[in-house]
């Protein structure tokens, strides 16, 4: 389970969920603003460093995250690199032209994807969804049913992962061989995806019923067992980061 909250005591773990959310959003804004590949590169390294050392994410999980998003990012890089027009031709091969501007734009966009993905991953891995729900509800007045929706979406990913693993096991047990050839691969994936979706749907329905049976939504508000200690330092640092973002926006 790659993208899932893991208990820990790192700096990011101890940050209160809302200050951390503000920082995450500002990170996204900064990533959207920077348009040079080198700037994105530096920013990505900063994010990776923060996730590794302040969030105690392992190099392995960061690498897995990079590999996951690379499946989308690399084809995207190639396509953008070939299609964005520029003046400084770097390489030409038949109808294909690679320009420095094209490479810069493609690099910036691709690195941005990594930054957005890895920073969100660091947030999810270091944030207890229960605390997030409680804080959204208590401090920001977000209705708890809505806040639960967010947390449910976060917990739904590992759930899908888990259901997927169970179903894959069941299919193997039924003698499904690893597919060979395009058609059988497609058939295999289709059968697998439809089973996972069907089971996930069933699960969502059951969960909704189970939550109702435990009084979910009975009152407009609810209590939360856990309390989150918000350190003034966290709030101040989040505020400073907002100012920094605004400053960068003004400069860039």
């Amino acid at each position: 389970m790659l993208i899932q909250y893991r208990r820990g005591s790192s700096l990011l773990h101890r940050y209160d969920p809302l200050s951390k959310l503000v920082i995450l959003l500002c990170t996204a804004v900064i990533a959207m603003m920077l348009d040079q590949a080198w700037q994105q590169g530096v920013f990505l390294l900063l994010c990776i460093g923060t996730a590794r050392f302040a969030g105690q994410l392992t190099w392995r999980s960061l690498l897995l995250g990079i590999r996951l998003i690379a499946v989308v990012a690399i084809p995207y890089f190639i396509l953008t690199g070939l299609t964005v027009k520029g003046e400084t031709v770097w390489m030409q091969w038949g109808p294909l032209t690679i320009t420095t501007e094209g490479l810069n734009a493609a690099g910036a966009m691709t690195l941005r994807m990594f930054t957005l993905f890895l920073s969100s991953m660091a947030y999810i891995v270091t944030t207890d969804p229960r605390e997030l729900v409680a804080e959204l509800n208590r401090r920001l007045g977000v209705p708890y049913r809505f806040a639960f929706g967010i947390s449910a979406a976060l917990t739904f990913i590992p759930l899908l992962e888990q259901e997927g693993a169970q179903i894959r096991a069941a299919q193997q047990v039924r003698g499904h061989q690893p597919p060979k050839g395009l058609m059988s691969r497609i058939r295999y994936v289709l059968a697998f995806v439809s089973s996972v979706l069907l089971n996930a749907l069933r699960r969502v329905q059951q969960t909704a019923g189970a939550m109702e049976a435990k009084g979910f939504g009975a009152y407009p508000d609810r209590t939360f067992r856990q309390t989150v200690n918000i350190s003034p330092m966290h709030v101040i640092s989040a505020f400073a980061y907002v100012l920094l973002t605004a400053l960068l926006g003004w400069i860039v």
């Binding site: 609810r222 209590t223 856990q226």
Partner: peptide, 18 residues
């Protein structure tokens, strides 16, 4: 959390939930 979920919905005080 499974045990706490119902009482939280019914607005039971945190100490009592524990």
């Amino acid at each position: 959390d499974e045990a706490a979920f119902g009482p939280e919905n019914l607005r039971v005080a945190p100490e009592e939930i524990e």
